[in-house]
Design a protein around this nucleic acid. Structure first.
Lengths: 108, 108
DNA sequence: TTCTTACGTAAGCAATCACTTACATTTGTG
DNA sequence: CACAAATGTAAGTGATTGCTTACGTAAGAA
């Protein structure tokens, strides 16, 4: 989980993901979109591969990279959990308040 | 955006977020859940604050922290975008294939 | 086989990160 | 006011990160 987040938390890697989100691209062509050197991009691709956010396919001497959507599921559901837990907490707070108010009315 | 992702990409900070996701907690009580020293946690809280993922409320000498759900929206929608763009790409691919096949049928 | 193309890998380096200890600040209490 | 409690801030340090240059490797072309 943290590996995925760490992989996402870098501007060049985010840009790589955007680049290959709509089409499979070879490493060289990806690198050409950046100011950094080709090895730098190659290393970023490796990080993204390890995190399971992209996948690689070899075709002759080229290596084609594409997004791996399933890789994002874990991150997605983690965020959803934060959202859900918070909503649940708010809900309980409201219900608690309602109970208190009803009790006060009863006493009066 | 990258700030939020970087803030999320650290185990202790993730745990802090989980801790305060259902209840507002003072800094000291948060720190007590960890092996790290209190200053370390204080620094993590600062990172999370800067990223807009949590908010602080002062009460006497204590500082209470709670999740800031809006802070997660940007991350959420970024992930959604990756998902959507990929779906769109897949859709176009299928339609392309269908057109090709129809053409072949026509020629025969 | 030799050369070229498209890559990855290794080593080294400066910047950033997460942590610790020591100190400063703010608020309530006797 | 003096003191205690709760917390942040500063400075220093080892580990990790992202980058570069130099080198290694695998696949197709001559």
């Amino acid at each position: 989980m943290v590996d995925k987040l760490k992989a996402l938390a870098e501007p060049n890697r985010l840009e790589i993901l955007r680049l290959i989100s709509h089409e499979e691209l070879p490493a060289g062509e990806i690198a050409r979109h950046f100011n950094a050197t080709r090895p730098a991009i190659s290393q970023h691709l490796h990080v993204l591969l390890d995190a399971g956010l992209i996948e690689e396919r070899r075709e002759g001497t080229r290596r084609l990279y594409r997004l791996r959507a399933e890789g994002f599921d874990e991150v997605r559901s983690m965020l959803k959990e934060f959202w859900d837990v918070r909503l649940q907490a708010l809900k309980q707070k409201v219900e608690q308040k309602q109970r208190t108010q009803r009790r006060r009315h009863g006493r009066k």
